[in-house]
Every structure is written in structure tokens, then in C-alpha cells.
Design a binder for these strands. Structure first.
Lengths: 208, 208
DNA sequence: CCTCCACCTGTCCATCGGTCCAATAGGCAC
DNA sequence: GTGCCTATTGGACCGATGGACAGGTGGAGG
């Protein structure tokens, strides 16, 4: 049903397994070699490319769902793939069945990572939480719920367009909310907002 | 096909949407009120319960796939849901279509969270991994002294113009350095650069 | 009813930010 | 010398961003 594009150095060795899962897939050497890449709803990129990270970024920028494939999967690389915009990460030699499950998951808006990486993610997140870093809610209290949502989305690195999509509002509205947020918190742009809200650990003390 | 169990305080107000997605779902007040909860392969728990976290833990302990539902979704709560064992987290009033997508994703072994939360999770994990000192130092080590200066200045919230002034170079040169920094660190803009270097932030020294 | 507020949207516009096309010049290694 | 890295700058291009101005809705409360 969906159009699958596989990008990698030596797709030949793996083509068989992939074709078993997706009979009518497309093989390519690079993401930019396909002008109609946006037509593909699932792009699989093998991490044996020297610039696989950039490939993932460009591919995901087109709106396609990207999955990272590795011949030697490890957590570090998996995280980098996710950071680059991949929605999935698994072994390049996975069985057809697994491939189909993954594509089902990611095409449904999900994130697919192996059990170990998933456990790592959850465990790390809990560790983070138990760290007991107090969310500086004092600043957020001055914001309306919607403004808070926009602000929180922005400080994760989202663009106005992305925030608009995820909140299902116009980009213009995002700007409006952001403008109010900037004024309320006394910052001039999104970067200073991120520093002000100190989502990491760096508390920026100013007023109060 | 799959058996859906919804657990929440006032499922009535949301029951309609849920039934639209899953005609033969089961509503419950508590997780332990169903002895056959293990039969259910998807359990949806609304976070308006006082002990929703414990509910998620017990439900996921039975092996069921748990999804957290919130009437007022936020990242903090989402993280806690994941920590408790949920495989998904979304708005309690999501459309039937979204609900089905989510269940498809999580039943396929995936994890479903909103875009911002996903970004937050990925960043949290990668930041945590970088805490182990070798990677973060290597991050800055990959930069030339000048690039480091520019990057450090930028992550404090300075504009290109300001950086140019403080380093006594042209704004054009700042852009050039920044471009290299972005590529080396695999980020797309200054905000993501700040997020990436944020947890590493120790000494910010711009020659002056 | 009327007002205040949160929320949402539009158009226009100045600027900023990031990238692509370059080029020049010093330092250092082989 | 020849090559490589670093630092610097120019110009042009275009998308992203933030502000100004000008509205729309609906709900809560006087």
C-alpha cells in the first residue's frame, strides 16, 4: 500500500529481505537522488552511509517518515538517528515481519525502537525525573495554558510551523502566542526563551 | 479484534469518542476491578485518577499495553506516564482515528507520544548519555577555537550581530563559523545548538 | 446585556538566520 | 614549494521570525 524507499550503500545484500516485506520498494543511493521522495511515505536509510545523519534530516524534512537501519545497531547510533528525525531504528537485516510491524507503528505516528533502547529511554527519563529538578513553574504560571503549550513546544527546538501542526492551529497563531510569551517573560526571541525556562538545568535568574 | 479497556473517573463524557474507535470496549473505574484485565491487550488510563500512576504500573505489570490519556496533556505528566510503564500518551479527547492509530502503533511494538514530548524524550536521553563526559568534551573538541567562541556566545542568547561586535568580526564571519558548527554538531539552528550544548554549559568566555 | 479575556486568524513588512556561490591570507607540515 | 587548515569577508538568496495593525469567536462574570 505505502511506498517504500530504501537508501543505502550496498542495498544488494539486503534487498532480498526488504523485497520480502515490500515487493514494490524503491532502492536508491542517496536521498537527493529522488525528486519524488516526498511521494514516498516511508524512507529507510542505512547507517553505512558516511552522511546518513544528514540524509535522515533531509528526508524527514520533506515530511516523509524515516526509519534508520543499521548493520551494527547500538544505542548511541539509535539516539542519533532519532535526533536526526528518524521515527524508527532497527537492524538492517531484520525479518520481513519485523519490518512490516515497524512500518505499521511509525506510519501510525508512533516511534519504534528496539526493546533495549526503549528500556534505556524510559530508564533514563525516570532517572531524570527522580533527579528532582524542580520545574520552574513560577515563570509558567504567568502564561495561559495555550501559551504554555506553545512555549514548551518551542523550547524543545520546534519551529513555528511544527508547533502549528502539532497544536493544529495556524502558524500565525503560534506567532501571536509567542509574542505574548516573549513579552510576559521579558525575552526577545525563542532562544532566550529556552534559556529562561531553563529546561535543562541552567537556571537563568533575572527578575524575582 | 483487540480488546480495549478504558479506565477513568468519568468515562461518560469521553465514552462516545472511544466507542467510535472501539465499539466493544470495556469501561472501568479501576485497574484492579477487572480480574481478567490480562485478557485485554490495550489498557487506556486517564490521568484524572488520583492514583493513575499506580494504575498504569499495575496494568502494565500484567503484560498489557498501556496508554495514558490526559485531559490536559503536558510533557511532565507524559514523562511520568512513560516512566510508569505506559507505551503511549495523548489527549483524552483525541479523535477515533488518532486513537486507532495509537493502538496500532503501540500494538506493533512502538511507542506513541506527541511530537514535542518525543523531542524532549530524545533530547533528555541523549543529554543524559552525554553526561558521561567523553562525548560532550568531544563535541567541543571537534570545533576550532574560534568556532567554539562563536558557539558559546550564541548559546547565551546573543544574536549574530552581537557576537560579531563582541568578537570584533563581521556578522558574515559569524554566520560562516556558525554554519560549520551546525554541520559539525549535527544541528539545524541556534536553538538546537543551545539545547545540545546546554547541559554542558560550564564556562562561557567570549574574549573581551 | 455588556465587558473582559483567552483564543484564533489575516495581511503586511523589516529583519534575522542559514546557506550557496565564491575569494584572500596566514600558519604549518611534508 | 605545495597542500591543508583556519580565519576572514563579500554578495546574493530565501525561508523563518517577530512585530504592527486589525480584526473574528466564545465563555465567564459584573
Amino acid at each position: 500500500m505505502s511506498r517504500q524507499v530504501f537508501i543505502g550503500h550496498r542495498p544488494d545484500s539486503m534487498a532480498a529481505r526488504w523485497r520480502a516485506a515490500f515487493p514494490d520498494l524503491v532502492l536508491a543511493e542517496r536521498a537527493d537522488s529522488l525528486d519524488d521522495l516526498s511521494d514516498a511515505d516511508s524512507v529507510w536509510i542505512v547507517t553505512d552511509l558516511p552522511d546518513w545523519k544528514a540524509q535522515i534530516e533531509t528526508a524527514s524534512a520533506t515530511g516523509a517518515t524515516v526509519v534508520g537501519l543499521s548493520l551494527n545497531p547500538n544505542q548511541e547510533e539509535g539516539l542519533q538517528a532519532l535526533e536526526a528525525g528518524a521515527r524508527g531504528y532497527l537492524h538492517a537485516l531484520a525479518t520481513a515481519e519485523v519490518l512490516q510491524q515497524v512500518v505499521t507503528a511509525v506510519r501510525s505516528g508512533g516511534l519504534w525502537v528496539g526493546p533495549e533502547l526503549l528500556r534505556l529511554v524510559v530508564r533514563t527519563v525516570s532517572a531524570r525525573l527522580s533527579d528532582g529538578r524542580p520545574p520552574n513553574s513560577s515563570l509558567l504560571d504567568s502564561l495561559t495554558p495555550r501559551e504554555r503549550q506553545v512555549a514548551m513546544a518551542v523550547v524543545t527546538g520546534a519551529s513555528n510551523k511544527e508547533v502549528a501542526r502539532s497544536l493544529d492551529i495556524t502558524e500565525r497563531t503560534v506567532k501571536a502566542h509567542l509574542g505574548v510569551v516573549f513579552e510576559k517573560l521579558g525575552v526577545r526571541d525563542r532562544l532566550q526563551l529556552a534559556l529562561r525556562l531553563g529546561n535543562t538545568q541552567t537556571e537563568v535568574e533575572t527578575t524575582q
